[in-house]
C-alpha cells in the first residue's frame, strides 16, 4: 500500500506569530518552524498502517526551503521517502490554490491512501482534506479517530458533535485525523541517522504540472484585506450564585457547546 502523508511546517504556537505587512502573508522567518502538531498524528497513523499492512510511506510537504526540517522529522519518525513541493510561485497560495498544487503533486507521486492532519495551527481552515478529495475524485474521510483497512475497504470512526460516525469507503481515499487517533512516537536516534540517507525529491511547479496561473498570492480566490493585533483579553462573565449558579454555569457551557 502506497501511503502519502501531507505534512506542513507551521510557526511554533509557543512563540509570537506575525503577518508580514507588505503582502499580508504569514511571516515564516519570524518564528521557529515546527511540524504542524496534527500532522504528527497523521505520520504516526501512516506508520502504524504500514506496519500492519506493509507498503511504503511517502511524506509530502509544500513550503519554503526550511520546510526540509519538517520533512526530516517525519523521515526520522520512520517514513520511507519524501517529496518537497517547493517553488517561489507557490508563495501566498490560499486553500484552493494549495489544494490544487498538492493534488497535482499527489497525482504525480501516486497513492492508495492520503493522510493528513485535520487542520493546521496557522491557517486553520481545516479544508484541505475535503478539497483534495474533490480534486482527486477520491472519497473523503475526515476527522478520523480510528482507521481500519481490510483489502481495499477503509473504515473510519469520524468524530462528530454527538459522538462518532462509522463511515466506510474504498481505496484510494483521503483521510484527515484528529489527535485522539494515536500517540505519535518520538524520533529515535537510529531513525534520525537513517533519515539522512532517505531520498527527498524536490518538485517545482513545472515538475508537478502545476499551472502557474492557479497558484500564488496573485491568483488566490481569498484575500487578506487587513489585519490587526488581537485585543487584550476582556474580563470574563462572573456568575454570582443566587441559588441558580449551577444552572447558569451549565447554560453558559451549553451555549459554547462544551456540554
Amino acid at each position: 500500500m502506497n501511503i502519502v502523508v501531507c505534512v506542513k511546517q507551521v510557526p511554533d504556537t509557543a512563540t509570537e506569530r506575525k503577518l508580514r505587512s507588505e503582502d499580508k502573508t504569514l511571516d515564516r522567518d519570524a518564528a521557529d518552524g515546527v511540524v504542524n502538531e496534527l500532522d504528527e498524528y497523521a505520520v504516526e497513523e501512516a506508520l502504524r498502517l504500514k506496519e500492519a499492512h506493509g507498503g511504503e510511506v511517502t511524506v509530502l510537504s509544500m513550503g519554503p526551503a526550511k520546510a526540509t526540517e519538517t520533512i526530516r522529522k517525519a523521515l526520522a519518525m520512520g517514513a520511507d521517502k519524501a517529496v518537497h513541493l517547493h517553488d517561489d510561485a507557490l508563495h501566498g497560495s490560499d486553500a484552493l490554490g494549495t489544494s490544487y498544487a498538492v493534488s497535482q503533486a499527489l497525482k504525480k507521486i501516486g497513492f492508495d491512501l492520503v493522510i493528513l492532519g485535520s487542520e493546521s495551527t496557522d491557517a486553520r481552515t481545516g479544508m484541505l482534506a475535503a478539497m483534495l478529495a474533490e480534486r482527486l475524485g477520491a472519497p473523503q474521510l475526515t476527522l478520523a479517530s480510528k482507521v481500519e483497512i481490510e483489502g481495499t475497504a477503509i473504515r473510519v470512526e469520524r468524530i462528530t458533535d454527538y459522538g462518532y460516525d462509522k463511515v466506510e469507503a474504498s481505496l484510494p481515499a483521503v483521510v484527515s485525523v484528529v489527535e485522539k487517533i494515536n500517540e505519535p512516537r518520538y524520533p529515535s536516534f537510529k531513525g534520525i541517522m537513517a533519515a539522512k540517507k532517505k531520498p527527498v525529491e524536490t518538485l517545482g511547479i513545472a515538475d508537478a504540472d502545476i499551472a502557474a496561473d492557479q497558484v500564488g498570492l496573485a491568483n488566490s480566490w481569498s484575500e487578506v484585506v487587513d489585519f490587526a493585533a488581537a485585543p487584550p483579553r476582556a474580563a470574563g462573565t462572573v456568575i454570582k450564585d443566587e441559588g441558580d449558579g449551577g444552572a447558569r454555569a451549565a447554560e453558559f457551557l451549553a451555549s459554547k457547546k462544551f456540554i
Binding site: 526530516r72 522529522k73 526520522a76 518520538y186 524520533p187 529515535s188 536516534f189 534520525i192 541517522m193 539522512k196
Partner: peptide, 13 residues
Amino acid sequence: EVEEELRAAVRDL
C-alpha cells in the same frame, strides 16, 4: 544537525 535533532526528540519527550 543530528545532535540538534536528537536534542529536539529528547526535549519533546
